[in-house]
């Protein structure tokens, strides 16, 4: 109560997400052919630890406190994780998208939700082709359930987290046709 989104908001997100996926398909070939920066080393599909570090950063992965970076040196993506840039996600085939989704959902099963995780989950969902393979179907249902569990436990009403969790639940349930997991209209 008080956390779930309106039906109108959910419908807007589904429409927006559909447009985003169309644009992604339109621009995929362009971004796939762009050179990656020299510091971007994408792990192999089966390298679970490598992908967790790649997406979330060594700082979060290792749960160690590090001193703030010197701003003059710019962002160290090895430490903070690489964001889901088009030049990166456009290179991922469906098997890799599904594998990385699995790794990050597994991570989320034990760790708190973070904006970095939210961005990657959204990007991977945008890359996930329909009709879903049975494995992907099960994975995204697991993801929506975990989002619901975490949302219930949000005590400080961190608006950004609630919003992000609502977004993921909405896309899984209403874009990927898992309507039994959808938030009821409020």
């Amino acid at each position: 109560e008080g956390y779930s989104p309106t039906l109108k908001w959910q419908q807007q997100q589904v429409a927006h997400f559909s447009t985003v996926r169309q644009s992604l398909n339109k621009h995929r070939n362009h971004w796939r052919s762009q050179n990656l920066d020299s510091n971007v080393a994408m792990p192999k599909s089966e390298d679970e630890e490598g992908w967790k570090k790649f997406c979330l950063g060594e700082r979060l992965y290792s749960e160690i406190e590090m001193l703030p970076d010197n701003e003059d040196l710019g962002i160290d993506y090895i430490k903070v994780g690489f964001p889901p840039l088009l030049s990166i996600v456009s290179r991922m085939d469906q098997a890799t998208v599904t594998s990385v989704l699995e790794y990050l959902i597994s991570w989320f099963g034990e760790k708190p939700f973070t904006p970095e995780l939210g961005r990657w989950l959204y990007a991977l969902l945008a890359c996930l082709e329909k009709p879903l393979l049975p494995e992907a179907h099960s994975l995204i249902r697991q993801l929506a359930r975990r989002c619901s569990e975490v949302r219930v436990l949000e005590e400080n009403k961190n608006e950004e987290n609630i919003s992000a969790l609502n977004l993921i639940i909405c896309l899984v349930s209403r874009y990927f046709d898992q309507y039994d997991l959808a938030d009821e209209p409020s």
Binding site: F17, P84, A123
Partner: peptide, 27 residues
């Protein structure tokens, strides 16, 4: 909308996510 533009930059998915998350506050 930016998603329809030919200038869909490298951070387009991140921007789309941030926009969607921010929209909940305004709903």
């Amino acid at each position: 909308q930016s998603e329809d533009s030919d200038v869909w930059d490298d951070k387009a998915l991140i921007k789309a996510y941030d926009k969607a998350v921010a929209s909940f506050k305004d709903a």
